[in-house]
């Protein structure tokens, strides 16, 4: 399977935070055959294990989160309009006129209502509607809709996928499924005998609502060392992001007080040696990623953090470059095959 196929397939699977279990079977079918073991834990973390076949091999955990931001049904009006509350950091600017899918007994397509300019009052355009004022129009009468959808049914953005110039692509929930796709691809295509340890890929749950899945997933697996992969902000003219963290800048390695300095240093050295394109990013206050909780799990898990730069994070049209996805895959391969790292951080 090509990396781009995975990059299209993963975001199409439903995985609103808390509801990641909904797509476990599809996920297993998609990539399961390439792994020795697939399982899902009590918090809906999905695990894919590939063993090295060596005795006393170190246990390496690669974490990318699988959940995505979305919404949840809070009320259904008699005339079939659906009110929702956010799950995770949903940007309310991008909601009006957005296309969504309500995951009830069956999938229900809907459009988030917007006020046409004709009906707007002067000054309305400057104001954002709050989530409470918005509703989803499904075109189904209320009583019929209640048979399919109920309070608590999750709502996701409708999957979109667009190829842009220069092998850049646009789609939803590349945060963090772009990393998940790259990692699965990397591990799938690494011959068992080259692995420096037993690799456990964790597609973790509930990251968007407070790093909840990784906390318990890390506890359950308790690896010798871990690599957390997430997306980061690529430079755009409207931000204060450093210009050299941009699309096609490769994998972005984070230096932070909470990540293991030695492991990070070794990962950087590995990039140099294998000529994997990378940039550096500093996170003085900690990272806002699963790395925050991974390092202090149980008796400590040495953890490194690397990211893929993307644009328009948390919108239905996140934008990335396939070159960066390939860099991240190469980086992952380097990390899981590095005997130097395994020697230092293994048992």
């Amino acid at each position: 399977m090509e990396l781009k196929e995975l990059m299209m397939a993963l975001p199409a699977l439903m995985s609103v935070s808390g509801y990641e279990k909904a797509s476990d079977k599809e996920l297993y079918e998609l990539v399961g055959e390439h792994f020795d073991e697939c399982f899902t834990d009590a918090l809906n973390n999905h695990f894919f294990v590939k063993r090295s076949g060596k005795e006393n091999a170190p246990k390496i955990l690669i974490d990318t989160h699988y959940d995505e931001i979305g919404m949840i049904v809070t009320r259904i009006s008699d005339d079939g309009f659906v009110s929702v509350a956010p799950i995770g950091g949903v940007d309310t600017r991008i909601l009006q006129a957005g296309e969504v899918i309500i995951y009830g007994k069956e999938k229900v397509y809907g459009v988030i209502g917007s006020t046409p300019p004709h009906l707007a009052q002067p000054g309305d355009a400057d104001k954002l509607k709050s989530m409470e004022e918005l509703y989803i129009d499904t075109g189904i009468p209320g009583d019929e809709l209640c048979e399919i959808v109920r309070l608590g049914s999750p709502v996701g953005f409708k999957p979109v996928y667009t190829e842009l110039l220069n092998d850049r692509i646009c789609g939803k929930s590349f945060d963090d499924k772009a990393c998940a796709a790259s990692v699965l691809y990397a591990v799938m295509n690494t011959p068992r005998e080259e692995l420096a340890g037993d690799v456990c890929v964790m597609l973790s749950s509930q990251e968007e609502v407070g790093l909840r899945g990784a906390r318990v997933g890390g506890f359950g697996i308790y690896p010798d060392y871990a690599l957390v992969l997430d997306v980061t902000f690529a430079y755009t003219p409207d931000t204060e992001i450093r210009k050299d963290v941009c699309l096609e800048s490769g994998v972005c390695i984070t230096l932070s007080p909470i990540t293991d300095r030695r492991l990070t240093r070794m990962a950087i050295d590995m990039c140099r040696e294998k000529e994997i394109k990378y940039t550096l990013e500093a996170a003085p206050k900690g990272t806002g990623t699963n790395a925050n909780v991974m390092g202090i799990t149980r008796e400590g898990i040495p953890t490194a953090l690397a990211s893929m730069p993307i644009k328009s994070m948390h919108s239905p049209s996140e934008l990335l470059s396939m070159a960066d996805a390939q860099s991240l895959a190469d980086f992952t391969v380097g990390f899981i095959t590095s005997t130097e790292i395994a020697e230092v951080f293994g048992k």
Binding site: A42, N45, L151, R212, V216, G220
Partner: peptide, 22 residues
């Protein structure tokens, strides 16, 4: 069915215990 937008409960602490609790 209850969807409470503010406030937390012990449910969260229990869920996050060890390797996770349903």
């Amino acid at each position: 069915c209850e969807i409470l937008l503010h406030g937390g409960t012990d449910t969260a602490s229990i869920q996050a215990s060890r390797a996770g609790v349903r």
